[in-house]
Nucleic acid binder design. Structure first.
Lengths: 340, 340
DNA sequence: TTGTAAGCGTTATCAA
DNA sequence: TTGATAACGCTTACAA
């Protein structure tokens, strides 16, 4: 545990082999200008001396660090962790490291995260904005540094930036149509923050479906900022207690849908016969809960992979801007499927 | 999107202010040797020039990169993502960045990951071994570089290394006692890979409880490598078909427990009255599935935080070795609680 | 095919 | 209180 042990450098290899550092550097890179034997010798010595390249030094010299910063609201959400899995896989196969930072949905943390990425000298930034974020100086600062930025899921609304997200409008539209097709007429919608495009789009999709099917607006309640299990529970309880029980609860989150279902079950209300409930995200629990939850599969891993691919192309010098919509999939389960 | 834009350096600041780079460097660090006015001036200019420190260069000079590598089998497991959340939080409050790498349970990826960390010049390594890992040259290589290594959850069995894990033996022991207290006598155990200490310890805890309660070994079946939903389902189906249905299935994983439950429900077998089922990990779905699953809460976040604290202390020069057992919590739910 | 030397952005030593 | 300069480990013209 020799903690003041100096690391092996190419200089060490050069000295033991009586070569110059440049020869060693080139040999290590497999440069054809170096003879086969020398290259072989150098690589062998590198191995036996426990050499590993000092990335930061190489980065300093070449201006390329091979590190990509990834900023997400939370890492312990099925959606984001799968998405990161996709990012990581694509970046790795392109010899890029993944630097992760989670904001915990805090704007301040997000600012710090971007600064940390700037300091770390990452070659590009992939980010999904926090719920709180409404100002973008920190992002613009990064962009000014001349390095690529790719948004995913929660994007900045600027068409000159790359963004990969799902088709929220359509997903919500289809979901609402499905609920209406099951005979529901008095709907409650549990939405998110209106300043995030994705939640606005979901709400718009919901409303458009109602419009297209001639549902009376007076029969509909829309709640903002209602994405948590607790919110779902509380709102549902309040509706029941005030005699306003709807016949469908369409939620922009599996968690609030879960809260609603728990509350309805407690109140002895039958799902789906009396009330249909739908969620959003296809969290692991949605399949195995009782009743199983109708929801939207977002293909998180693919979103991550697609975003990473755009980043890789940008890093390689193709500075194209892309906005990609990953198609969603309606997963119909018991919580919304009536038998008539 | 000026991609050949040179980044602002302290030299730029120095020139515009007619100061030397050393003064600027010191001012930026808040060195008291620099006058208040100069410090102020420099910081203001840094801001207006969009300056941010170039970490790699500073790392090269100081030998301290403030980056910690974290290697995990998978990121999209509730357990690991929560754990990483804990790590990230502690490291960040100590001005350390988190470098993440997932092995997908592959030994080859793990080797590459350690190498990537070595190259990235991280100051320390936090790692949970892949299931496949049985050789440790890559780890020893990192240790030889003189930088601290902290294991979590899946550790190398070497008392000269720091490790944070849960008390698997006791957790399994308590779980087994709970099942026995519910009157079960013919038990099936679904375990993991025997070469991982944690799974060995769980199996030992299970067996010790049987021993202490005088259960006939002939009434017990132990399966190795049975941690997935599919394995749980298949083994359970096979037991039922061959007329060997047990009265309890104790699993080392929530996923195989889930598989078992799905199979039992399909076969019309009552849980828990005919068969008790227990899992391990308290995955999100275990609470909301039907029946809710008795399991073990591992306090993943705390494991991460504790491991990160040890790392931070090592980075700061205290090279103490610590093995920490985080206490678990038995979460008793419907899948194992008989009413008599 | 190999070597020399400059320079990436920063910090730290020494000098003023 | 500030400045000049060397050094960290690496890559890459340019030279041999």
């Amino acid at each position: 545990m020799n903690s003041d042990r100096r690391r092996t450098t190419i200089k060490d290899i050069a000295e033991t082999l009586h070569l110059s550092v440049s020869t060693v550097s080139r040999a290590l890179q497999g440069n054809p200008r170096i003879s086969k034997e020398t290259t072989e010798k150098v690589k062998k010595m590198a191995l036996s001396l426990d050499y590993s390249i000092h990335g930061p030094a190489a980065a300093l010299r070449t201006g390329q660090g091979n590190n990509i910063g990834v900023i997400v609201p939370r890492i312990n959400r099925q959606f984001f962790s799968s998405l990161i899995g996709g990012i990581e896989q694509v970046l790795r196969t392109n010899a890029l490291n993944t630097f992760i930072y989670q904001t915990q949905e805090s704007f301040e943390n997000e600012q710090q995260g971007v600064q940390a990425m700037l300091n770390a000298g990452v070659d590009g930034l992939m980010i999904s904005l926090s719920i709180e974020t409404q100002a973008f100086d920190h992002i613009e600062r990064f962009i000014r540094s001349g390095r690529p930025v790719v948004f995913f899921d929660r994007c900045m609304e600027d068409s000159s930036l790359s963004c990969v997200m799902i088709d929220d409008f359509n997903a919500a539209y289809q979901m609402t149509e499905h609920v209406l097709a099951n005979g529901c007429k008095k709907l409650v919608y549990l939405g998110g923050s209106e300043h995030l495009m994705m939640y606005r789009n979901r709400r718009k999709g919901f409303e458009q479906a109602l419009l297209d099917h001639h549902i009376q607006p007076s029969d509909v309640h829309i709640y903002e900022n209602s994405l948590t299990r607790e919110k779902g529970y509380d709102i549902t309880r309040q509706l029941i207690e005030t005699g306003q029980t709807p016949d469908a609860i369409v939620s922009a989150s599996d968690f609030s849908a879960l809260g609603s279902i728990l509350c309805l079950k407690e109140a002895g209300i039958n799902i789906p016969e009396q009330v249909c409930v739908t969620g959003f995200a296809n969290e692991l629990f949605s399949e195995v809960m009782d009743p199983s939850l109708t929801t939207v599969e977002q293909h998180a891993r693919e979103i991550g992979m697609k975003a990473a691919e755009i980043m890789v192309r940008n890093i390689k010098g193709f500075s194209e801007i892309e906005t990609v919509l990953i198609p969603t999939e309606l997963i119909i389960r018991k919580s919304s499927l009536r038998h008539r």
